[in-house]
Design a protein around this nucleic acid. Sequence first.
RNA 1: GCGCGGGUAGUCUAGUGGUAGGACAACGCCCUUCCGAGGCGUUAGCCCGGGUUCAAAUCCCGGCCCGUGCACCA
Length: 565
Amino acid sequence: MSEIMEMLVRRGFIWQSFEIYGGMAGFIDYAPLGNGLRRKVETLWREFFVINERSVEIDTPTVGIEEVFIASGHADGFTDVAIECSGCGRVFRADHYVKEKLNLEVDPTVEAVKNVIQEFNLKCECGGDFRNPEHFNLMFVTKIGPGRGKKGYLRPETAQGIFIAFKRLSDYFRNKLPFGVAQIGRAYRNEISPRQGVIRLREFNQAELEFFCHPGEKRHPEFYKYADDVITLVDKFDKEHRITLKEAVEKGIIAHELLAYFVGKTRRFLLAAGIKDEKLRFRQHKDDERAHYAVDCWDAEVLLSYGWIEVVGIADRSDYDLSRHTQFSREDLSIFVPFEEPVKVRKRKVVPDLSKLGPAFKDKAKKIAEELERLEDVGNDITVVVDDEEITVSPEYYEIKEVEEEIHGERLIPHVIEPSFGLDRITYAILEHAFDTDTVDGEERKVLRLKRKLAPVQVAVLPLLSRDVFVDEAEKIASELREHGIYTELDVTGSIGRRYRRYDEIGTPFCITIDHQTFEDETVTIRDRDTTTQVRVGKTELVEVLVELLNSEKSITEFGEIFRS
RNA sequence: GCGCGGGUAGUCUAGUGGUAGGACAACGCCCUUCCGAGGCGUUAGCCCGGGUUCAAAUCCCGGCCCGUGCACCA
């Protein structure tokens, strides 16, 4: 186990789930400190992507019904059959492999594939035999309700819950584009072989924003905020660029301004969370790498001990999801977008005469009329198709009128830009980038240099000695800090130096020490984790000073005289 | 999923068939005027299941977990 993982487990950031039963790969427990940190990362994310955006946050079920994932395309793997070689261990998608080797279309079912393999004695490229074919899908299946129940899946991403609620959401925003909808929550993928600690989990935390926009207006009014930020980009040809976002858009490296806006915002968020700029890059997905729904995709990658790891995916999903759900649910998920000026259009319209259609066509009359109204610029005898029946309607049943219409807008399916964050990976990356060791008097000191606002324990109150008077005073101060919402720990055990080390290791930015002088002049010391310097501050101003320190990056030396430097 | 290497207190580690040892950490008491001090004491361990054997942490088989290479990662 790496030095940092050893610390994270020992100090209570993360633990292996189901440990007393031997554990299960792909699942972790967030221990007290790790949970605190992740919660704070979520809060920071909300500040960026909900509060300071035209966005709202919702929460939808983690279980989804089968229809959702058929529409979304995630269930395709259902009908995919995988075959694995018993010799070399390679896994192929069976129908693709059969097509390639035998030039044969095979039904993508286990039975059909099995028959083909036997009939043609199909071998692996390495000459090995294939095992029995199996269904291949990374979604967890579940059953809703008793008995045979209804088939459901644990969601593989939070996004679908947003797309499904689109009509309600659009209405909530009074049908005005653009708008964003965020969701923070768990998602599940039944990974074949989860590895690398928290990097690939079977149950993980996502923070996703679906930003719905006009297909022709992929811009953002606040792009100027990030336009001049210099970032590292790796394009789909593996070419590295170190340029501003503005240039990246102008040169067409990033497809459009809105995508670039979210690249910039994502970068600022990650930096605010403590990711190091020099260990951060944005990489464009290659053409064969993109998900089935994406037209362009940029990953934020962070350099960790595991290599460059994807922590955020920023995808232009176009109208893929809303179109698919329109098709499968038969609900209209388009939005009416008014033109700036109404457009006048002259056209010939077919106006059905229901008083004649009715007696002649009886119960079909209504449908025929609807079909007729849909047509324009027609000849004399019109043929329409109603209930698979061709019906010819002669001119006596309708009138053709030349009309001038004002068109006020158009219905269109919004496109969606999706920044999707892996919170577990980000939380881990923050820890790795914050982890530092330095040497003091030949002793190694481990320090977690977390951003102050993310530290799970913000302040530790430490009586210099374990005598009652010191401890009583420390308890009073700790209570006061807690009443003001500061996450405070009180620690009485061990020498003062040992206690400083403890809190350095878990990233606590400030230690308050009660010493002899406290009883002489009502002051305490504040010790800064990163510099280990101390200043003396009056007890009465302590809360105010700490609140300001915790919400800024100011130096403690601005708030008091240096003590024992 | 396949191959290789591992799994002994909270952590790290010694232990090749015969009573499981240490370090650090933690906890208690004493001492102590600021950066892993000291003294005394305490807690705490052989991943799980089966087999071989009089006897298994140790040998064998299977599983689980960790690491790693291949494959997979919509």
